[in-house]
Nucleic acid binder design. Structure first.
Lengths: 408, 408
DNA sequence: AAGCTTTTTCTCGACAGTCGAGAAATTAGA
DNA sequence: TCTAATTTCTCGACTGTCGAGAAAAAGCTT
């Protein structure tokens, strides 16, 4: 059923439109906002006046006055309108970043990821968040959103990790990491989902369009996949299918998830190691494999070692077959490959293409674009900011109290 | 980027909201519309007055006057506001149905699907459409939409069949079937997509909710799949992934599409035939297989014939593995099985469950609900109407000329 | 049969929002 | 100092939703 609409909702939507234009271009004048949003000048006046009264945006000091005419007044977000903490969880570290409402990074630090169960893990994150606000002398209450990312499967509605490489199917509820004194909302997203979102936003920014949909494939100890799709007149739709644990081969090699024959059990780092040393495929896979180990295998493969070459080729084929199934079920789209595994692209490529070549969609639509984008960490952070600010802006506008109270 | 919003759009959206309430419940009074939409009574007055002036809805003759109080005035669509033709293409027949704006079926007839290429095929459809309007003495111009369905792959934006079992990858553009004198828009959708849409709408109607997403699997000569997902405050999102030609087994049996190892090449009727008679898997598959042939194999299987049993079991496994991949890439969801193949469900079930059981998603989320819904044709027709009317209503409201001109 | 009750529909005024046009502001250049 | 250029601001017209209460129209009561 459609939702009913009202004039107040119109104002809300146009307000977030103004804010998102400010996010995308940063520090805009009245006329520029009008151009970017398509709204009439008078409307911009009204909206910016509201937002200014509500102390969400402010007139910028530094007037970039160039040309004749009346000098332009630049608007930008009020920095201390609120804060945002991103928490990026990887296999060995947890990275915390504190960002102000204008999107500038104020502080960043990492902590080693300790041992222990989910309770200890959540306690560590709780402490990390406390440390983040204390270091910058910020009130807990002014943190609007905590955006967490991890590998694994997140519940779509709540910040609960349903499955992760480390804790398996033991659920981790990140909402529990915030104790009293915090008013922040907590969101959790798969890491590669954020990468896909960041790549899509980059396309929009540079080319102003391009393909309306793309996939991000992250290669490493585990295999991640994100899909991002532009929808006309709305926020992009991003999702993280369980690609790494999709079935690659019935009754195949044992996977870390406990199932058999997953894509990851052939294309993850530990799987490449297992294949290269001809360890039986039902061996319990190693928890952690140092990248240097895989580098050694890659070196041997590049020197002509058959078994090492085969390990990478089979990994590539598992990815290729998986991608062919992805294209079958989600439609044709370009694929961007990222993560530490990209350094073995030369060894994987042939297998990937072999796996892709057979299928109907590829025969119809041609080989999908395969682009390597090595710098995964900055994509993850970009994805955090894109998503988090779109939510924060929406929320801040949605809670109209702030706008009206401040107007008194 | 978000789209800008305006007060006129608000009225548009609320108008289609009123129309869709009328679609769902049929013939409503002022207050009922208000309850169903959540709009204020005054707003309903204004909108219904507009729609009545524009000759889109009318006050119903038959006043179901029961109880005290002022008698209610029932509104319903004006029957001759416009017409809709659905064209359901199956392997041997083409069925045409003429429906008026209120949703009642006026005429229906079928024609055998002749031989020949795409040009002859389009000419036949063109003739069929002419016949439909002539039989009911309706003006071509008053047909608002022609909704076509077929098995195969449709281009998302235009009514072009990109791949079909009969014409292969030779594209068929149904827009070409309408010559001068027609103003109708033409839409084309995969048959099983419509089934999925109809099933979702049925759930909404009966349970007012249920799972927000489901898959429809159609078993027959070819394998079709549709996904329907409810989105909060919007039209449901329905899609038809290329499930039948997703890779089941690398270097596997030859498929009608020319590729190897597709799901269909193991689970389609011709594949079951091929397996039961131990014909080599690279044999060019039969174009048409009478259902009676499959019935015979099923009878033998039920009497204990090993080879026949295996044919069905392998078909089931191909479906099960395919579904496990579907759940991996689209998330956990219930599956509704339909089509002529449902009569062999007893023989397929074990294989399907075996194929599903292994995967990570199923281990996490449990075995998905598998429900058999035998009556595919009525689901297809329902799906046509749901989708077509939502488009027609949107269009009729969107073209404001009609509303203003009629208001003079 | 007249009046009362009940229920629905309709109408009016208040309020919120967008937009176009033009006034006001402000600076660069003549 | 005046003028042209450019941006911002303001005003009135228009469209839309909503709540409250009037008007309508039937059944029920006496």
């Amino acid at each position: 059923m459609l939702a009913k609409s009202s004039t107040e909702l119109v104002r809300q939507q146009n307000s977030v439109l103004v804010l998102s234009a400010l996010r995308r271009h940063g520090r805009l004048a009245h006329t520029e906002i009008s151009d970017a949003t398509g709204l009439a000048s008078a409307t911009i006046s009204s909206i910016t006046a509201d937002l200014e009264r509500a102390r969400i945006i402010e007139k910028s000091e530094q007037q970039a006055t160039v040309g004749r005419g009346r000098p332009r007044v630049l608007f930008s977000q009020r920095r201390n309108c609120g804060y945002l903490i991103t928490v990026i969880i990887s296999s060995d570290l947890i990275q915390y970043s504190l960002v102000d409402y204008a999107g500038t990074l104020l502080d960043r630090f990492s902590e080693p990821r300790g041992e222990g169960g989910t309770a200890a893990f959540l306690a560590a994150i709780s402490a990390g968040l406390e440390r983040a606000v204390e270091r910058s002398r910020i009130e807990r209450g002014s943190v609007l959103l905590v955006s967490v990312s991890s590998k694994g499967l997140a519940r779509p509605t709540e910040p609960v990790l349903v499955w992760s490489p480390v804790f398996g199917s033991q659920p981790v509820d990140f909402a529990a990491a915030l104790k009293d004194g915090w008013q922040a909302k907590v969101i959790l997203n798969n890491e590669t989902l954020l990468v896909a979102g960041a790549l899509l936003e980059r396309q929009v920014k540079t080319q102003g369009g391009g393909e309306p949909v793309l996939a991000a494939l992250s290669l490493g100890h585990s295999i991640g996949l994100g899909i991002a799709r532009r929808v006309t007149g709305g926020v992009p739709e991003i999702s993280a299918p369980n690609f790494g644990h999709m079935l690659h081969m019935p009754n195949g090699g044992l996977c870390r998830c406990g199932a058999r024959g997953c894509v990851e059990a052939y294309a993850g780092f530990y799987a490449i190691l297992r294949a290269a040393f001809e360890v039986p495929v039902d061996t319990i896979p190693a928890k952690f494999v140092p990248v240097t180990e895989i580098d050694k295998i890659a070196a041997r493969a590049r020197q002509g070692n058959r078994m090492a070459q085969l390990a990478f080729r089979n990994a590539g084929a598992a990815l290729g077959y998986g991608l062919s199934r992805l294209l079958s079920l989600h439609g044709h789209m370009p694929v961007f490959i990222t993560g530490p595994g990209t350094r073995y692209q030369d060894l994987l490529q042939a297998g990937i293409e072999e796996g892709l070549a057979q299928t109907h969609v590829v025969r119809l639509g041609g080989m999908p674009g395969l682009t390597v984008v090595p710098d995964e960490p900055s994509l993850v952070f970009e994805g955090h900011l894109n998503l988090a600010f779109s939510i924060v802006d929406q929320d801040i506008i949605g809670s109209r109290q702030s706008m009206q109270a401040a107007g008194e």
